[in-house]
Design a binder for these strands. Structure first.
Lengths: 237, 237
DNA sequence: CGGCTCATGTAAAAGCCGTTCACATGAGCT
DNA sequence: AGCTCATGTGAACGGCTTTTACATGAGCCG
């Protein structure tokens, strides 16, 4: 049966058997409850049912645990973005918007990961593998921007994909961190963060010359079916 | 002479005489050096030359000190933005861009204030006077957006000023917090955060129908549609 | 000037945390 | 069976936050 190495505080021998995993899980819980600053190493150990010194067999120090979480976060983030982008199907623009929504959804649904990744205060370049994971996640956005840039309307200068990607990233992060989660979400808004970001991205894309109204027949290279006549901020009255 | 109540560790009697101010100053130093997490109450006390218990005569706890700093930060921030906006002189669009630059400059030059304001992890609504200060600062951006919205080209639906303001804020905060300061600034970029934000805002404004080229002779009076010549990202090759 | 009072500072202590080190345990291999 | 080494424990150190009882002296009042 499974009485042996259950997670949590089930009776166990001298050795935990799965401590590293249990610690990561506990840390996620704690960070999502009390923020990356409020999380303590000792608490995580307690929650895993081991002594305060035990975690040091698995992580050099508290920062390394947080870095591990950030690392995992970037991996899940990358996977989520990849899935949202879906290689640009069914059309580049709408896939692009889906990526924006996925960004926000991640920040909202995995606040612990998101804080560890972007708000834990640990230097980006402290851990090379961490930076690599971060760059792989960003690469998705960049690849999407690349495809989008290639669709630039003829006659207009083609925007640098890297710049577009950075712009999209900063918008997404800005919305997520100001309005997206927990404490910050308490700022009163006339619209949801999702709608706010979507409008922002659409206006931006239009500024680059992309036709994002998606009225029938006005779309440049896309075959997206008919949408609204309304602009990116809903129906003007 | 001025041997009496000099700042720092100069000889002093039993009473410091200006401890509250000294603590705020010390905290600013420490936060800018080690981030809002690395800052300790005891360190600030030491730096001011008093015992670790002394600060409690002036601040309920560590969080209240940080909140005080955030408060001051918002006040300076508001003043800086007001000055940058300069009531929309000499013209709305360029004043608007100046506000964006001022935002970034504040984040870069006052990282301690900026972290206390946006990254300290304390709930926005913990302190009503703090939230009020924050709202006064945002009101500048909002007022600028209002003026800008009023200039919307005829024939296009007028964008909601509040939404514009939130968009600008999220772009500015996104760029500042991802690329603007200290650790985050180590991400390698093809351009400066300032240029990145300026381009982002210009493209966004163009997406709203504002003509932002501002080369001599191509301004609003011109009949040429925006975006034909040099874009906001410089000369395409 | 003398004395009172109260804001402001100190010392000491409790409780927490991170971290280290010597030591215990027992899982897995030979 | 016995060895070994990864993994966990207990105790200890120093530092931080916060509280409490006590000390100091600046400002005021007569």
């Amino acid at each position: 049966m499974s009485w042996r190495k259950d997670q949590g505080r089930a009776e166990r021998g001298y050795h935990h058997g799965n401590l590293k995993e249990a610690l990561l899980q506990a840390a996620l819980d704690l960070i999502s409850k009390k923020g990356p600053a409020g999380f303590t190493f000792a608490d995580a150990a307690r929650m895993a049912g081991v002594s305060p010194a035990a975690p040091y067999r698995h992580f050099r120090d508290r920062d390394e645990l947080i870095a591990s979480i950030a690392q995992r976060g970037f991996e899940q983030f990358e996977s989520l973005l990849t899935q949202a982008w879906d290689d640009g199907r069914p059309d580049t623009v709408s896939a692009f918007e889906r990526v924006g929504k996925a960004y926000l959804a991640f920040a909202r649904e995995e606040p612990a990961f998101y804080s560890a990744m972007f708000e834990s205060g640990l230097p980006v370049d402290s851990n090379p593998t961490l930076m690599a994971a971060s760059e792989r996640a960003f690469a998705i956005i960049r690849a999407a921007a690349e495809r989008l840039a290639a669709l630039a309307p003829p006659g207009t200068p083609r925007p640098p994909a890297m710049m577009m990607a950075l712009h999209i990233w900063s918008m997404s992060h800005g919305v997520a961190s100001l309005f997206g989660r927990g404490d910050a979400a308490r700022r009163k808004l006339p619209m949801s963060p999702e709608d706010l970001l979507e409008a922002e991205v659409l206006i931006y894309l239009r500024g680059l010359g992309f036709l994002t109204d998606r009225r029938p027949g006005t779309d440049a290279a896309d075959d997206k079916p008919a949408g609204e006549k309304a602009g990116p901020w809903g129906k003007p009255k």
